[in-house]
């Protein structure tokens, strides 16, 4: 059974149907990418999965539990974390306070400390700046903080929304290396990206999204060589 199963998902914004019956799944240990143009509905799908948006139809199952109607704050403790688009770090709080909020649902103090240590190892910059206000970090550092914050909940599945958006090429490279590392440490990843080339290069499988529908899916390296994908998303 898949770790995350989304079936016939429909999401409305008022009367507008933004997601028109989408089904996909993520298996344990995989990196799965959702790619598609601006406005295709990628972010909406992630918001629906993590409980921030109500679903008008369909179901979402996480590790066998139906989470279609579970509120976002209860989904976190089931083992799903969401790194939102645009980072959304708490700008007025310090880096350390942000990270601690990431572990809000956890009560195991000792293990939390070791998670924090691990995160500092993956993101040495965060340790250097732990007492700095998050709003003063650069975009790339804020992205690292948002990822570190999500990892603090010790998730089994991590959803990432446009982690490379607005970052310099060096940071983009670094962020994708970190995603690979997170995956290799045993966390399952569902990645939404406009940077299709990068996303496909680290993904096991991918889904192509067009105006609220999945139009194509398959192994990432197969999609990378698909003529229509190349033309529409890879700029070749």
């Amino acid at each position: 059974m898949a770790m995350l199963e989304v079936k016939d998902l429909e999401v409305h914004y008022g009367v507008i149907k933004a997601i028109k019956g989408v089904s996909f799944e993520v298996n344990e240990g995989e990196v799965v990418s959702l790619i598609g143009a601006n406005g295709a509905g990628k972010t909406t799908i992630l918001h629906a999965v993590s409980g921030l948006l109500p679903k008008s139809k369909g179901s979402i199952t996480f590790e066998g539990t139906d989470i279609t109607k579970v509120p976002a704050h209860k989904i976190v403790s089931l083992g799903m974390a969401h790194v939102p688009e645009g980072r959304r770090v708490f700008a007025q709080l310090s880096v350390l306070e942000n990270l601690k909020l990431g572990a809000y649902t956890r009560n195991d103090k000792k293990e939390m400390e070791s998670t924090l240590k691990m995160i500092y190892e993956s993101f040495p910059r965060l340790e250097e700046r732990k007492n700095q206000t998050a709003g003063t970090l650069s975009g790339g550092e804020q992205q690292m903080l948002a990822m570190g914050r999500a990892l603090m909940s010790h998730p089994k599945l991590i959803l990432m929304d446009e982690p490379s958006m607005g970052l310099s090429p060096i940071f983009v490279e670094e962020i994708f290396n970190i995603i690979k590392k997170i995956s290799s440490q045993g966390t399952t990843v569902l990645l939404v990206e406009q940077n299709a080339k990068k996303a496909l290069s680290i993904a096991d499988r991918a889904y192509v999204l067009e105006t609220g529908n999945i139009t194509l899916s398959g192994d990432a390296n197969v999609l990378m060589n698909d003529e229509s994908v190349k033309k529409a998303y890879l700029g070749e």
């Binding site: 921030l52 704050h73 959304r88 770090v89 708490f90 909020l101 990431g102 809000y104 914050r149």
Partner: peptide
């Protein structure tokens, strides 16, 4: 701390499990 998080960004706070 949860109050501060909510005052800054309700959705992000919700994603922390608050």
């Amino acid at each position: 701390q949860a109050m501060l998080a909510v005052s800054e960004d309700k959705d992000a706070a919700e994603l922390m499990g608050i």
